[in-house]
Amino acid sequence: MPYFKYTALTPEGRRIGGTVQANNESQAIDLIRRRNYVVLKVQPVSEKTEIVLFGVHLNELVIFCRQLTTMVSAGVRLKDALSILSRQNVFSPRFRRIINNLVLSLEMGMSFSEALRNEKVFDQIFINLVSAGEEGGVLDKSLEKAADFYESSKKLHDEVRSAMAYPTFVLFFAIGVIFLITFYILPRLISVFGNIPTSGVVRFLMNANRYLSQNWLSVLITVILVITGGIVFSKTRYASYVKEWLATLFPPVAKLRNMMAVERFCRVLGTLTGSGVLLTKAIEMAAAASNSPKMIRVSKRVSERVREGASLRQAMLESGVFPQLVYEMVGTGEETGKLEEVLVKVAEFYEDQIRTGVKKLVSLVEPMLIAGVGGFIAFMALTMYSTIFQLQQTIGR
């Protein structure tokens, strides 16, 4: 079924655009007009041509899931609930366009999970929770589980970011101080004597200052491109491998990342299995959500062992990746038939451990940053004093 790119006006007079799938152009126009939009332009395309670099922001996904859950549980039709959400200013214009496309896909006859998958911006966890809810006739409960899951993820994410706010400020402040001393104070001090040292650290800094002064535009453009490239790269799946390698250089960070991966794996696996998703499929999805390359690598082997008839506990034990607490608790959950509850409890335990670990890491990082800044300033002061002393001796002769 072909795609059609459209431009239209909303009842409020706002210009919007998007892509709709239909059998022909007339059906595409009819689908758009059903939403009381004024069609300005419809153009057939062979496929969705937009390149999706970023998914849905976690903050918007949390609000979307909770409000959609509330309305669907209250008996509002799914399509009507999405129509209401598409007009809320709490969402960004991009996300409102995505919701509009979901409504058009539902009117075209797609299921909600198919419409979500068609947009290519929602993660597989949410899509599979919705799919399981549709198959079991319990979409409202699946949406509630999704809302609880994303709210819990956002809460932990916000706590970690809040705890790291002060060390981050100290780090940027330190970089600012170093930049000020190196490229503003030092050149002024040296220029007083009318002579530039011919060797040592000071000469290197003066040459760097002269280069930046002469090529500031190209340096600025390079810095902007590097920062932009770093942000884009951090959203890709390859960034997790780089982060894991960097974490090995600092054991406290590696330990914290491992706990975060285990917490994410257990919470996602518990949510998916409790919603009726097939266990073998849920294992691979939970591993992917953990962002741990080690878990992703062993997830297929664990899934295959479960498919062969082994217990989940035995498969996790053989993988050699999961902590003993996790697979022992999983074994208890399998024996009692309460695997979902046990996994949630394990996730909550590791969530508490992450909070404690972040506090310890912050308490360790802060003095290291302060000591680093102080050490650099002391080094620069000693270097400048030695240089000025040498220049004074030269002038005295």
Score class of each variant (00 low, 15 high):
K154M: 13
V192Q: 12
V52K: 11
N215G: 09
N258R: 08
F179T: 12
A22L: 02
T273Y: 12
R35Y: 07
A22D: 07
N101Q: 15
E284H: 08
A239W: 11
V321S: 10
G276K: 06
V342G: 00
V362S: 06
S73Q: 13
F250V: 10
F322M: 02
S240E: 13
S363V: 06
F112P: 13
E308H: 10
K120V: 06
P197V: 04
S363Q: 09
L391H: 01
G17F: 04
A310W: 11
S292R: 04
H157C: 04
V20I: 11
M368K: 09
L85G: 07
A347D: 01
S386Y: 00
S83E: 13
E114W: 08
A347Y: 02
S26Y: 01
P93I: 04
A289K: 10
G13V: 04
M164S: 04
L279Y: 05
F183G: 14
N89A: 13
R14K: 14
G18S: 01
M316H: 05
P44S: 01
E304M: 14
L139V: 14
T198K: 13
L256G: 12
E12R: 15
V330A: 03
G270M: 06
F193E: 08
M384P: 01
F64S: 01
M164Q: 01
N258V: 08
I63Y: 01
Y211Q: 05
K120A: 12
I377H: 01
G309C: 12
L40V: 10
P293V: 06
S46D: 14
S319F: 05
G375C: 04
N118I: 02
A239K: 08
T182A: 15
